[in-house]
Nucleic acid binder design. Structure first.
Length: 203
DNA sequence: CACCCGATGGTCT
DNA sequence: GACCATCGGGTGG
């Protein structure tokens, strides 16, 4: 069972997901940018920026379940973002999929994303990635390693990784839990949250 | 390039 | 009623 390789801390899981292949509804994509997220204050990886920080709710329930499942959520009322749940069952943690290189099914991606979008931007950014692969809220909670699932994950050889602060979070803004493949134009640009304290402040 | 801002709706206080 | 794990189009240098 490949999901067992994700039953680790979120940063280690993030490293294993860089270079992995995500397949969904006719499209194959190589993951090139991810962000690690932890859990509750008294858990092993307390993370004020994580959806799971304040305990289980209807939205984040999947994060507390077994590793290898897909956790999707709606962002700013209009975009879908996708995570891979990691850590052991019962412990909240997940890795946000931020960008990918389209390796197959590019024609389908063009239909979903539009003809004007440059190749490198087809799955750049978490909302765009889900749009490109056709991932919706219907997919929340599915097992990424079940052959019958519409969204599948294949772990590959880990890629070289560069690390830096996470994009868009106002809490724990400087924690270097964003990983990306160096010199890869498909990786999204860094944007600090306008609500985050000045760089250098503590977690 | 660098900001800046509006769209838009679920979730949680 | 505030707060977003975003995006793309606008403005100005």
């Amino acid at each position: 069972m490949s999901a067992a390789r994700l039953a680790v801390d979120p940063l280690a899981a993030a490293r294993r997901l860089l270079g992995a292949t995500l397949s969904c509804r006719g499209v194959d994509a190589t993951i090139v940018e991810v962000e690690a997220y932890g859990g509750v204050p008294d858990g092993p990886w307390p993370d004020p920026a994580a959806h799971s920080y304040r305990g289980p709710t209807a939205r984040n329930a999947v994060m507390f379940g077994p590793p290898g499942r897909l956790y999707t959520y709606r962002s700013y009322g209009m975009h879908i973002c996708a995570n891979v749940v990691c850590g052991p069952d019962g412990t909240a943690a997940a890795v946000l999929l931020r960008a990918a290189v389209i390796a197959g099914g590019q024609e389908l991606v063009r239909v979903r994303r539009g003809v004007a979008v440059p190749d490198v931007a087809l799955a750049r950014g978490p909302g765009n990635l889900c749009s490109a692969l056709g991932i919706t809220m219907e997919d929340n909670g599915i097992d990424l390693f079940d052959p019958s699932s519409p969204v599948r994950l294949r772990l590959g050889g880990p890629l070289a990784a560069q690390a830096g602060p996470r994009v868009g979070v106002s809490q724990a803004a400087d924690r270097p839990w964003r990983l990306w493949a160096p010199r890869t134009p498909e990786v999204s640009a860094y944007r600090r949250s306008p609500r985050a304290p000045a760089p250098g402040a503590s977690d």
